[in-house]
Structures are given as structure tokens and as C-alpha cells.
Simulated assay, not measured.
Amino acid sequence: MASDLEFHLGYWLRFVSNHVSHAFSLKLQARDVTVAEWVVLRDLFDGDGVAPSLLADRLGMTRGAISKLADRLIAKELIERTAAMEDRRQQTLSLTAAGRKLVPALSALADRNDAEFFGHLKPAERAALEKMLRDIVRRHDLKTIPTE
């Protein structure tokens, strides 16, 4: 005998996660930004002038993935790459003025998406759900930030 899909908590987590992520992705697409690009933009918002290798480490991405994302965001004129004067091989990534202006608008989309899916929860329910999810992350030492 095999257990039903609905028997597994992982099924329900994935079910909800896919719908939350898809709805957010559609909101971002309307602003010509992907979820992975949003994650990079949001990280740079708090600390401009970040080395791509440090950004990769913080976000749990490969350096190649960061390089590709940076190229796309540079083409969109949302970030810029600057080489250090003393060693041109050392580079930093930072938001452009357009990128700095866009991040709060995208953050508002994330807030709205959260409210659409979780706004019906009472504050104590939301806090309990977050506590349980953070506990799972901690217990399994999960590090990679979801970007898909």
C-alpha cells in the first residue's frame, strides 16, 4: 500500500509554495524582473558595492549564476559593475538610481503577495507558522535562498 500524496506535509508545503511563488513571479514579470533578479536587487539595496563572490556566498548561488544575473541587470540598467582602481580584476556590484528606485516598489509587490496568501491568518497563527518554518530551516541547516 502506498500513502496518498495529501498525507505528506511536503506535498502541502510544495502546493502552497508553488502558488505563492507563481503569483509573485507574475507580479514581478509585469515589472520585467525575475524572482532571482529581485533577490539580487533586494540584497544590494541594503549594501551597495558588493563583490560578486560575496553576493554569491550570501545568496547561496554559484558565481556563474551571479555573473549571469548581473549581466541581465546591467543590461536593464538596474545595477552597475565597477572595477577597483588598484586592481581592475576586483569588481563590485551596486544599484543604479533606477535600481534603487525600483526596489521599494518590488518590495511592495512582495508584501502584497504575502498579504494575499497569508493575510487571513491571525497574528498568532502567522507567528506560529513562521516559527515552525524557521525551525525546519535551522534544524536542516538550509542555506540556499529560493529564487525559482
Results as ranks from 00 to 15, higher is better:
1 M>H: 07
1 M>N: 08
2 A>W: 09
2 A>S: 12
3 S>T: 15
4 D>Q: 09
4 D>C: 09
4 D>T: 08
5 L>R: 10
5 L>F: 10
5 L>S: 07
5 L>D: 07
6 E>C: 07
6 E>F: 11
6 E>D: 11
6 E>G: 08
6 E>M: 12
7 F>I: 09
7 F>M: 12
8 H>L: 05
8 H>Q: 00
8 H>T: 02
8 H>Y: 03
8 H>K: 03
9 L>E: 09
9 L>F: 12
9 L>N: 11
11 Y>M: 00
11 Y>V: 04
11 Y>R: 02
11 Y>A: 00
11 Y>C: 06
12 W>N: 06
12 W>M: 05
13 L>D: 10
14 R>Q: 13
14 R>M: 12
14 R>L: 11
14 R>N: 15
15 F>E: 07
15 F>R: 06
15 F>G: 00
16 V>F: 10
16 V>L: 14
16 V>E: 15
16 V>W: 12
17 S>F: 02
17 S>W: 01
17 S>T: 06
18 N>A: 15
18 N>P: 15
19 H>Q: 12
19 H>F: 05
19 H>E: 09
19 H>Y: 07
20 V>F: 13
20 V>L: 08
20 V>E: 03
21 S>K: 06
21 S>P: 01
21 S>H: 05
21 S>D: 06
21 S>L: 05
21 S>T: 09
22 H>V: 12
22 H>A: 14
22 H>R: 12
23 A>C: 04
23 A>H: 08
23 A>F: 04
23 A>W: 04
23 A>I: 05
24 F>R: 01
25 S>I: 09
25 S>Y: 08
25 S>T: 11
26 L>T: 00
26 L>M: 08
27 K>H: 08
27 K>P: 04
27 K>V: 07
27 K>S: 09
27 K>Q: 10
27 K>E: 02
28 L>N: 06
29 Q>E: 01
30 A>W: 02
30 A>M: 01
31 R>H: 08
31 R>T: 09
32 D>T: 02
32 D>E: 09
33 V>G: 04
33 V>D: 05
34 T>E: 00
34 T>G: 01
34 T>C: 01
35 V>I: 04
37 E>M: 07
37 E>N: 04
37 E>D: 05
37 E>V: 10
37 E>H: 04
38 W>E: 03
38 W>P: 10
39 V>L: 14
39 V>C: 15
39 V>G: 14
40 V>N: 14
40 V>C: 10
41 L>G: 02
41 L>C: 00
41 L>A: 02
42 R>G: 07
42 R>C: 13
42 R>E: 13
43 D>N: 13
43 D>V: 12
